[in-house]
């Protein structure tokens, strides 16, 4: 049949189109992402750069694991991630529910609520740094409204390790709750109102409707919001450095920056590379475990025989 070759030609052309369309992105990623990643991973296993006769070594990793500050950073990061993401989720969910009922002035409230999100972390850090200083605006404010005595200024930044952690969690929450709220709110607005109404007609009070209908139907949105927040929370550092400085509340990302940028010696630079590989593995690992545990990989149509 003379038709066959022509049909095959057309089909080949059509099949190639998507690959041609994604080619620029793939090339971009190979040059600007894959290459540096290979470089960093490789570099973390070298004693010095290859052209200076570097050889394979685990010394960089050993240096990381022997460093007590590293372990402190792991613990701090873990605590911050768990507490701040949980706190942020519940507050953001509550705010989203509130704005979703569309009370009078809710759009203005929404506008107010998303202001912190538009500020860069450096600005937030600087703002809270000047606010929390002994002669900062927060103390002045508290004195002005008569809540504390001028002789009794609160030393926010000089507190214990624990109080520093609380402070960071609160400042971080202040900044990222809007981000989480927007994601959750858009999920809520995508639900048909009849779903919750049916829940109320068929015997549910508001709490039961929320727990048995709204939250399960928002599952995909919640997973998305949580995974984005967890990844970002593991990488918290700038705000801590802005408020307290390096090594006052060690966290993982801060240690990478410290080793690579602040200490001008190759052994620290290579230790920093090893640390960044560790953090990268950690972030991917945590994300994977979270997605697995939340059932995001499950086929939504595979609930046969569940009675």
């Amino acid at each position: 049949m003379p038709d066959t070759t022509e049909i095959q030609d057309r089909e080949t052309k059509r099949n190639l189109t998507p690959y041609l369309l994604i080619a620029p992105v793939v090339i971009y990623y190979i040059i600007f992402w894959l290459f540096p990643v290979i470089n960093a991973v490789g570099g973390s296993f070298l004693s010095t750069s290859l052209d200076k006769g570097g050889i394979f070594t685990l010394a960089n990793y050993k240096a990381v694991f022997k460093d007590p500050i590293f372990w402190q950073a792991v613990i701090n990061t873990t605590i911050i991630v768990i507490i701040s993401v949980t706190l942020e989720f519940f507050l953001a969910f509550g705010l989203a529910l509130l704005i979703n009922v569309k009370f009078r002035g809710s759009s203005f409230f929404l506008f107010l609520a998303i202001i912190p999100m538009s500020l860069p972390a450096v600005a937030v850090g600087a703002m809270w740094n000047s606010g929390l200083a002994t002669y900062g605006w927060l103390n002045s404010f508290l004195i002005r409204i008569g809540l504390i005595d001028p002789s009794n200024k609160i030393l926010f930044l000089a507190g214990t390790h624990f109080s520093r952690m609380i402070l960071i969690i609160l400042v971080d929450a202040w900044q990222v709750i809007p981000f989480m709220m927007i994601i959750l709110l858009s999920g809520m607005q995508g639900l048909q109102p009849e779903m919750a109404e049916a829940g109320r007609v068929f015997g549910g009070n508001r709490w039961q409707v929320l727990r048995k209908i709204t939250v399960p139907m928002l599952k995909q949105t919640i997973i998305t919001a949580m995974i984005l927040r967890i990844i970002a929370a593991i990488q918290i550092w700038l705000i801590i450095v802005m408020i307290f400085g390096f090594n006052r509340l060690p966290v993982l990302m801060e240690q990478i920056v410290l080793n690579i940028d602040q200490y001008m010696a190759e052994e620290f630079f290579r230790k920093g590379m090893a640390l960044s590989v560790i953090v990268a593995v950690l972030v991917s690992g945590v994300s994977f475990i979270y997605l697995k545990a939340s059932g995001a990989f499950d086929d939504p149509g595979s609930r046969e025989g569940d009675e």
């Binding site: 049916a198 109320r200 609930r303």
Partner: peptide, 23 residues
């Protein structure tokens, strides 16, 4: 509130909860 009214309702767009089985 709706739950205390002894009524039931069929909605125009069904409003069947997608995360639950028919049962």
């Amino acid at each position: 509130p709706p739950r205390n009214r002894d009524i039931s309702m069929v909605f125009q767009n069904y409003a069947i909860w997608p995360h639950m089985t028919v049962y």
